[in-house]
Simulated scan of single mutants.
Amino acid sequence: MSGETDLIKLYSGRILELAADIPRLGRLDAPSATVKRRSPLCGSTITVDITAEDGCVTDYAQDVKACALGQAAASVVGGNIIGCSFDEVRAARDALHAMLKEDGPTPPAPFDGLEVLRPAASYKNRHASICLSLDAAVEALEQIAQTA
């Protein structure tokens, strides 16, 4: 099977559905932290705004300019991050990295929907785009924790 055919299969119907319906798009009026991240390989970018209280995410918004894989990841994150603790978000980020790079386990609930991106493990040039939303969220939460 050719590499091009494999790449086309990577963009499954579920990934395209997630990419077409990203929750929490936009920006927050008064975020506790804002982080913009960019994937140098493909140019995908995401800006996340987060508010948090007592170590849990209370509001979240995202401006996503990424490929379908990055959009699908942002969709799963946006749909599940509210109410999560900083540790849960960090664990999801670490698990996503391990899933893509080391065939590690699927990120824990509520981020287990990221399993749909497991086939992208073979495409290292796509990893940064897939990880943008959780990388930016963790960075924002670390900023909040430092000021608390």
Rank of each mutant, 00 (worst) to 15 (best):
H127F: 01
A33N: 05
V138F: 03
E53N: 10
G3V: 07
S12I: 09
A20I: 06
I130Y: 09
R93V: 06
S32D: 15
T58I: 08
R24S: 12
A30L: 07
L117P: 02
S122C: 00
L16K: 09
A61W: 00
D87P: 05
R27V: 15
E88M: 13
A92Q: 00
S44H: 07
A140M: 03
L69C: 08
L16W: 06
R38L: 13
K101I: 15
A33R: 08
L25V: 15
S122I: 12
D49A: 04
R90S: 15
L28F: 00
G79Q: 01
R27K: 15
F86K: 07
Y60L: 09
Y11N: 03
R118W: 05
V89C: 11
L114Y: 04
I46C: 00
A74Y: 04
A91N: 03
V89L: 00
P107S: 12
A136Q: 14
S133D: 13
D49P: 00
I15P: 03
I22S: 02
L16R: 12
P110K: 08
A98D: 12
S122T: 12
K9H: 15
A19P: 05
A52Q: 10
I15C: 08
L18F: 06
T51W: 00
A73L: 05
Q62A: 08
A68L: 06
V57S: 02
V48M: 04
I46F: 09
G43M: 00
E4G: 02
L7R: 06
D49S: 03
D63S: 14
L96V: 09
T47D: 11
V48C: 03
I130G: 09
M1G: 15
V57M: 10
R27Y: 14
P40D: 05
Y60D: 04
C56D: 06
E115I: 01
R126M: 09
A30D: 12
A73F: 01
T5E: 11
L10M: 05
C84A: 14
I15H: 06
D21V: 05
R24D: 03
I8M: 10
T106I: 12
T5M: 12
Q146T: 01
P107W: 12
A92H: 05
T45Q: 11
A95S: 12
P31F: 04
A148C: 15
R27L: 14
Y11G: 00
A128P: 02
G70Y: 02
G13H: 14
V35K: 04
E17K: 11
Y11I: 04
A30M: 11
V77K: 08
P40L: 15
I8A: 11
P23M: 03
K9Q: 09
